Simulated scan of single mutants.
Amino acid sequence: MYTPAPVRGRGTSHNPDNRFAPSRSVVEDDGWYQEVPTTQGTEVRIETAKTIITRNTSPDLPFDRSINPYRGCEHGCIYCYARPSHAYWDLSPGLDFETKLIAKSNAADVLEQQLSKPGYVCAPINLGSNTDPYQPIEREQQLTRRLLEVLLRYRHPVTIVTKGSLVLRDLDLLAELASQRLVRVMISLTTLDDELKRVLEPRAAAPKARLRAIRVLREAGVPVGVLCSPMIPMINDSELEHLLEAAKAAGAQSAAYMMLRLPLEVAPLFEQWLQDHYPQRAAHVLSLIRQSRGGELYDSRFGSRMRGEGVFADLLAQRFARAMRRLAFEGREAQALDCSAFCPPGAQMALF
């Protein structure tokens, strides 16, 4: 079977059919030379959203609502658990996910409508639960910045997860939100190795840029933590303590980690990535993943899907807990956000 050549600047060169496709196509090498493009441009489609706040009841998540201004993510992280969501638009979780993006152009207006409803009860909203709110196209689209402007105007608390250094563009808004205890930022830091970052997260910010983002945010008074996610056996798990140490030195106040998750179409994409970049250790990596997932590549059960189970997962948890104590990271409760100040513009605040 024909194997696509690597696409420069992308996480995968493969574009498999999504799980809802009524038919499957297989490309065969007929022996004739064909010019294969070494780059792939980004296409941005516009969506008019009807609602923008997504609710969840997952016991694994520290929030019950989130906003994703974009579908798909140009960062191209090969491990991204959000890749299968592209199937709902009849797009591939492979190359389509990182090249055919959807921007919810009216996100800020819809958010304002939802926050203004009489029955709305305030609780922190997360930006970046599915795809990164500060991926490269945010520079032109500015949807995340407009959302933050609405949240600031309504005095609504927000948490942000990103691996994009573009977050510093909105330092003015974040500092103002922080002064009212309305924001907390988590910077995702997966590796300190630039070469590993290049193939694992091709269009995400460099490790040094993410550490600088932590430093600058903290200097501006913004509560900031580090998310070491995902931890991949025999790929980056040996860096866990170094990641935490570097983040702490940069000013991170809190920390968290997650084990690699490979739901649905992500598993075969990740397996091919291993064969492309780490063929000699691919079998070992997959074996350790299966040992941590009850013999499978993925376990969707609440309580174990984020951490895994078994000897390797337990050891990783112990290492993380020990590093947390040694480095004196704070818990989430120390960075609690204020929901009492929420007030739609023009509405009268409670006297007591």
Score class of each variant (00 low, 15 high):
L327V: 11
E138D: 11
F63R: 02
T12E: 00
P84Q: 07
V224G: 07
S287F: 12
M349I: 05
R290F: 06
Q318M: 14
Q291L: 10
P124A: 11
P59Y: 02
A206H: 14
A175C: 02
N130F: 00
L200M: 13
P124Y: 03
Y120N: 08
A220C: 04
E149P: 09
E43S: 05
L327E: 12
E138W: 10
V185F: 00
E149F: 01
A323G: 14
A328C: 13
L297Y: 06
P233N: 08
G72F: 01
Q275M: 10
C122D: 14
E35T: 06
K100Q: 11
M259S: 15
E98W: 03
K50E: 15
P136D: 11
A328T: 15
R145W: 08
A267C: 05
L297Q: 02
L91T: 04
F320I: 10
K50L: 07
A341M: 12
V27C: 12
D276K: 05
P124D: 01
R218H: 06
A204D: 04
Q272C: 00
E98Y: 05
M234T: 12
P279W: 06
V311R: 15
H284R: 12
P202W: 02
I137R: 08
S13E: 01
T54M: 02
Q280Y: 09
G41Y: 01
L174C: 04
T12H: 05
A328S: 15
P230L: 07
R212K: 13
L151R: 07
S92A: 05
N68F: 10
P118H: 04
L288N: 09
